[in-house]
Design a protein around this nucleic acid. Structure first.
Lengths: 340, 340
DNA sequence: CTTCCGTCTGGGAACGCTCCCAGTCGCGAT
DNA sequence: ATCGCGACTGGGAGCGTTCCCAGACGGAAG
C-alpha cells in the first residue's frame, strides 16, 4: 500500500496542492521560493512534497518559462581532443564551475559524425539549452553556423575565423609563441626549427607567425615542418624530418607539448642530449610537460579561466546584458623547466 | 520585412498549419513522419516549415510525450578521470555511437562538487533524460542512489558494490590480473611486486586478488604497495618503496598503465634495465602503454565496447524490454610488448 | 443502391508547469 | 467608520506539443 512504484505515475504539483490543502499557485510559489507565502502554507507544502515524493517536471517548467537553465558545451572530434588536448578537461571544469555558481546545468554534447552534427543542431534549437559554448570550432563548422543563425546565447573558446558577432575567449598565440621562441634563442641556439600544426585555425597560424617574428632574419622556412594534428606521433615524424634536413639543428619549438614529447623521444633515440645538444620548447603546459624527460619548458595556458570566461559571457547574455563580441584574450605565461 | 529576428518570437506548429492551410494535427503527423498524410498536405507542410523557419519546441514535445530522446552520462571527478583514465574517452565514444544509431542524444553531466551532485540529481529526475549511464561510481554514490530510487532506465560501466537491480557492464578484473601476472612469472621472474590502487572499488580489489592467485605460494604481502589513485605519481612513489623493501625485485605488476609508466621512470633513474633486470606489466592498454619506453605489456580493455553495451542496455530498457541485471563481462586480451 | 473499409483531416483535451489578475484579510492611519 | 496598503491566496489562461476520437470522402464489394 505504502510503497507504490514511483516510476509509472509521478506526483504533480496538483497532488502536492491537494495534500497540503492549498492551491497550485501557492505550491509553485514555495517551489520557486518566492515571497508572500505564509509560514504555515510553506511548511504544509514542504511536508506534502516529501510525503508524495514530488519532483518537479522540468519539461513543463521549461515550456512555461521558456528557459531550461542549462547550457550546452559542444565538443568536436572527441577522440583527438580527449587524447591529445589535455586542456579540454580544465576548460570543461572552468565552464562547469562558472555555470554551477549561477545554478545552471552544463550538458556536454559530443560530435563524432555527420548525423551527430544534425542531432545536436536540433537539440540546441529545440529549447533544451539556453546557451551554448563551442570549443575549438574549425572554419565552416555547421554547428557554429546554426548557433549564429539561431541567435541563441553563445561563446567560443578559440576563434573560428568565419563567424562574426559571437564573443570568444582565447589567448594571444602570436605573442606567446614569439616570447618562448625568443627565450629559446637567448639560450644561445643558432639553428632553430619548428613543428607547426593546426594551420586551419587561427591558433596554429599565429603560433607559426610568432615563431617567425622571433627569429627575424634567422628564420629558415625549410626548418618549419607542418602537420595537421597536434599529436605525439606528429612530433616524432616532424623531428625525424628536421634532423634529415638540418643535422646541425640545436633548437626546436613544437606547437604543442604532445609534439614536444615526440621530439624528445626521437632525440633520445638518436643519442642527442636535451638540453645539451638541442633545446626543446613546447606549448600548452599540459600533463605531457611535467611527465616528459626532461620536463618541458613551455607556454602555460589558463585553460580553466578560458572556460570560465566563456561561461560568464553566456550567462551575461542570458541576463540580457550586451556583451563585447570583440574577443577576450587571456594572459599566458612561460614556464621554464629543463628541456631548454 | 523579410528578415525578422527569429530569436524573439519563434514560429509554432500553429503558424505552420495556418500557412500550409491544414490543421495542427496534420503538421504534427508530417513532423513525426506518420502515415495517412496526403502528398499534397505533406508538401504544403514542408514548404510552410521552411518558409516560416519552424523548429520544433522540444520542451512541449517532451511534456506531451513524456520522453526526451536523450540519455545522460554522469561523469564523476572529471579531473582525475580525464587526466588519468584514458579509457573514458573511448567509453564515451562507444556510448555516443550506440545512442546515435538509435537517434538518441547523449548529454554528459559532470560532477565536481556537492552542489553539482544535487543539481544533476534534479536534472535526471526532471525529465530531461530518459535514461542514464554512470561511469565508475564508487560505493555510496548519491547519484547512483537517486537513480536507483527513481526507477529510471540506467546502466553502470563498472560495478558499484552497494547498488542492486541495475545492469552493469565491466571486465573480469580478477582473471585478467591473474593472467598477466602468470605470464610475467613465466618469463622467469622470482620476486614479483605489485602496485595496487582503487581498493574502494571492485575493480581494484579484484586486480589485487588476481595477482595473489597467480603467485600462489610465492605471494609476499610486503611486495604489494597500495595507493588510492591510479596515477603516474603513484607509480613512481610505489616503485621507490618496492625497491626499498626488496632490492632484488625482478618483476612488477602495476594496476594501471599510468602507474607502470611511473615504475619505468624510477627504474631508468636507478639504472635498472627493462625488461632485462626487471619485467614490468601494466593494465588498461591506454595511450601510456605505447608511449612508454619500452612500450608496455598490458591488459587491453574493450573500452568502446564497454560504453556501447551499457548504452544498448539503457536503450533496451527504454523499449520496455526487461534486461538482465546480473552484469555483463567483456573479454580482455593481453597485449605483449617489450616491457616484460 | 447500400455497406464497409481504408485513407485522410480537424480539433478538443491533455501534459505539468508558471504567470498574473482578482480578491480576501487584517491592521494602522484618517 | 472608512480607507489604504501590505501580505497572502486561488485559479483561469496559456506555453507548444501529441494523442485520439469523430467524421468526411471515395472506391470496392455485395
Amino acid at each position: 500500500m505504502t510503497a507504490r512504484r514511483a516510476a509509472s505515475a509521478r506526483a504533480t504539483i496538483n497532488d502536492v496542492a491537494a495534500v497540503a490543502g492549498v492551491s497550485r499557485g501557492t505550491v509553485s510559489r514555495v517551489l520557486n521560493s518566492e515571497a508572500y507565502v505564509s509560514d504555515a502554507a510553506r511548511s504544509a507544502v514542504t511536508d506534502a512534497i516529501s510525503k508524495v515524493g514530488y519532483v518537479r517536471n522540468s519539461a513543463a517548467r521549461n515550456l512555461a518559462t521558456r528557459q531550461s537553465h542549462a547550457v550546452g558545451l559542444v565538443v568536436h572530434e572527441p577522440h583527438s581532443l580527449f587524447l591529445e588536448d589535455p586542456n579540454i578537461g580544465s576548460i570543461l571544469l572552468g565552464i562547469n564551475s562558472a555555470l554551477s555558481d549561477a545554478d545552471y546545468q552544463l550538458v556536454s554534447l559530443v560530435i563524432d559524425s555527420e548525423r551527430d552534427s544534425h542531432r545536436v543542431a536540433e537539440y540546441l534549437s529545440g529549447g533544451f539549452v539556453d546557451g551554448v559554448i563551442i570549443v575549438s570550432a574549425r572554419a565552416h563548422d555547421p554547428i557554429a553556423k546554426v548557433v549564429a543563425e539561431l541567435g541563441i546565447a553563445a561563446a567560443f573558446v578559440g576563434h573560428p575565423v568565419d563567424i562574426e558577432g559571437i564573443p570568444y575567449v582565447g589567448i594571444d598565440n602570436f605573442s606567446a609563441a614569439k616570447a618562448i621562441t625568443t627565450k629559446l634563442k637567448e639560450t644561445g641556439r643558432r639553428r632553430i626549427g619548428m613543428i607547426a600544426a593546426g594551420l586551419d585555425r587561427d591558433s596554429g597560424q599565429d603560433r607559426m607567425a610568432g615563431f617567425r617574428a622571433a627569429l627575424g632574419d634567422a628564420f629558415d622556412p625549410d626548418l618549419v615542418i607542418t602537420t595537421p594534428l597536434y599529436a605525439h606521433t606528429s612530433g616524432i615524424d616532424g623531428m625525424r624530418l628536421l634532423l634529415d634536413r638540418a643535422p646541425d639543428i640545436d633548437g626546436v619549438f613544437a606547437a604543442s607539448d604532445a609534439m614536444a614529447a615526440g621530439v624528445l623521444d626521437v632525440l633520445r633515440e638518436v643519442g642527442r642530449s636535451v638540453p645539451g645538444d638541442v633545446g626543446v620548447v613546447g606549448f600548452d603546459d599540459s600533463a605531457w610537460a611535467t611527465r616528459a624527460q626532461p620536463p618541458l619548458s613551455t607556454v602555460h595556458q589558463p585553460a580553466g579561466q578560458l572556460g570560465r570566461r566563456a561561461a560568464e559571457s553566456v550567462l551575461a547574455q542570458l541576463r540580457g546584458e550586451t556583451v563585447d563580441t570583440a574577443g577576450i584574450f587571456l594572459e599566458t605565461a612561460i614556464v621554464w623547466r629543463d628541456s631548454a
